[in-house]
Design a protein around this nucleic acid. Structure first.
Lengths: 350, 350
DNA sequence: CTGAAAGCGCTTACAG
DNA sequence: CTGAAAGCGCTTACAG
């Protein structure tokens, strides 16, 4: 900026004004400065300098568990991203992706992107309880909005009534007459383990969404008088189709099941595929429900819980921007809706 | 940092060393400084200060045409993102999403994220020729790597041999005996227009990938003696399923067609859906080919061109990081492969 | 409308 | 191993 000022024969402050406060300069002078800048290949104020001075970065960070690859594999996450980015674009705020694999030691160290990343605030998406990245980010003292995770007792949060919605869809299935019902969850504890869920593991659950949905199913089972022993719960250990399919196959080894409650649509779609492979017809031989209502759910005629994924992203981004602007934050719970389609029916008579 | 230094009874430089050059301090002193910092709620060096001093941000920007929503709707783009983010995570570099809608005046103005965004370099993904955002970014003088777009004559680029691969898959279809072949492209000119492509519009094409693929088809047609008049080309005007489906429906109004060459898998899948709705069976009544080999292509048994989407992202990110590190850049062309599946067959005899 | 000046928070070469 | 100092590029309050 000094070079430009010298070349244009003005003060360095005038150059700054040319970019930031045009009204403080005569039009001719401003024009002159901008022309000189263009000639010298100066593209405008350096972001780092501006940030240091103003304290505003113009970017928000999105914390995602695991690698970004995971996030992009999950259609529900992609919808959420759409909503977030809509708001960001409108507000001229960039979105910085901050992947937080659980194992990385760099999560808490100074070198990592969580500590070093220049952002004005964080959106923490589906972070499991006790994730070290969360503590790192809280320590930075910047505004944080939680999406689908624990609010740590004090953070503003955007989510849906997972437990209630899960109870509702389970009640729908039980209401059709099913008693032998299997349950599929993504992941309760982020340790990569997959397979049947023990009571101890269920108590140790750290992924709030899966935990709450499972709790909702349990609640419906209790109300319907289905005992804990009668229900099998399988954890996929991951969010991708392959893990989902394997979990579904494991669950369907129990041929007495007449229905499967899947905690996500991806799990449900994998269940339908696995059932088809076994020669089972949905819903004649097996009722299947999902959760989220991603685009594929409608195509597969899946009974599921609709949640406003894009809107969730929008609201979270707006909330964060509000907090950054110094406004008061309030928790937001968005409505869900039970969508009954063709993948559920009464159990076949023996 | 000054506050911490005072509280710890050391120089401000010592605090900096505690975070950045541990070996310059005795272990005890470092420990002491870090403890005091934790007590005072200091989370480590301020990113803006560090960036201003070192000139390194620790983030790369990804330029995407249109809104991010578009990008996330496109499975091919999502795969690319996966590859990019893999490299970023490994190198501890954050990925900043920089959407560049064509219409926005802020693209070139000082207030926009393109001018203001703090990054060490840019990845320009599928930017159409002449996009104003590209000029803005070039003006910043930071390293740029182009993916699937024009290299502007001098930028390092990562891509695939679109024209050659398109010629190959077209030759496959023509080799099966098809003569009445329709073509579907996403978008030639980013003006939102959709419908039949005139010669003038084809010449004015600014989306390099679509342009090249179309040129490849044309080349195969010429070799097979299929005249320009015999082929209809329809432009969808967008990348999403809805636009694709509408374009497919428009193309299939011509009932004499026995095959459709779609420039992307999304277009091809939409074509299969549209054909099914019309009561046409694939491939018996209509052969359909795609391009990209996204996950859904295999499920739909689609004949297509496989390109290494994730690897493309990886290579581009690595290349950019190399250029940022001061290394020499070279253009990268990744291999493609014709994948013949069940969506193509000889035309039915009349 | 213009210019001189302070200071945002940091890293590192330098002298001790 | 430690401290004093310069300077990265910027914005804005202040005096003229």
């Amino acid at each position: 900026m000094n070079d430009i000022a010298r070349a244009a024969g003005v003060s360095q402050a005038a150059v700054s004004y040319a970019y930031n406060q045009p009204h403080k300069l005569s039009a001719a002078r401003r024009e002159h400065i901008l022309t000189v800048a263009a000639e010298l290949g100066y593209a405008g104020p350096n972001p780092a300098g501006r940030t240091l001075r103003t304290g505003r970065v113009g970017a928000i960070g999105l914390l995602i568990t695991d690698t970004l690859g995971y996030a992009f594999d999950d259609p529900a996450a992609v919808q959420l991203l759409k909503g977030i980015s809509e708001v960001g674009e409108f507000a001229e705020v960039a979105l910085t992706l901050l992947p937080c694999p659980l194992e990385s030691p760099r999560l808490t160290e100074g070198g990592g992107v969580l500590v070093r990343g220049a952002v004005d605030g964080f959106l923490a998406y589906a972070m499991p309880d006790g994730h070290p990245g969360m503590a790192t980010v809280v320590a930075r003292g910047l505004p944080i909005v939680v999406i689908d995770g624990s609010d740590l007792g004090h953070l503003p949060r955007v989510g849906i009534p997972d437990r209630k919605a899960a109870r509702e869809i389970a009640a729908h299935v039980l209401g059709l007459g099913h008693r032998r019902v299997g349950v599929l969850v993504d992941r309760l504890v982020p340790d990569g383990a997959a397979g049947p869920v023990t009571p101890a593991r269920e108590r140790a659950a750290r992924d709030l969404v899966n935990k709450e949905r499972l709790a909702g199913y349990r609640s419906a089972f209790r109300s319907a008088g289905v005992s804990r022993r009668e229900t099998t719960v399988i954890e996929a250990g991951g969010f991708d189709y392959a893990a989902s399919r394997a979990a579904a196959a494991a669950l369907l080894r129990d041929r007495s099941l007449t229905a499967v409650l899947a905690a996500t649509d991806v799990l449900a779609l994998a269940t339908i595929d696995a059932a088809t492979e076994l020669g089972l017809r949905v819903p004649r031989d097996l009722s299947v429900t999902g959760f989220d209502d991603i685009a594929e759910a409608a195509k597969a005629d899946l009974t599921t819980v609709r949640q406003p994924l894009v809107e969730k992203g929008r609201q979270a981004a707006r909330l964060l921007l509000d907090v950054i602007a110094g406004e008061q934050a309030t928790a937001v719970t968005l409505p869900t809706e039970l969508v009954v389609r063709g993948s559920t029916a009464p159990p076949r008579r023996r």
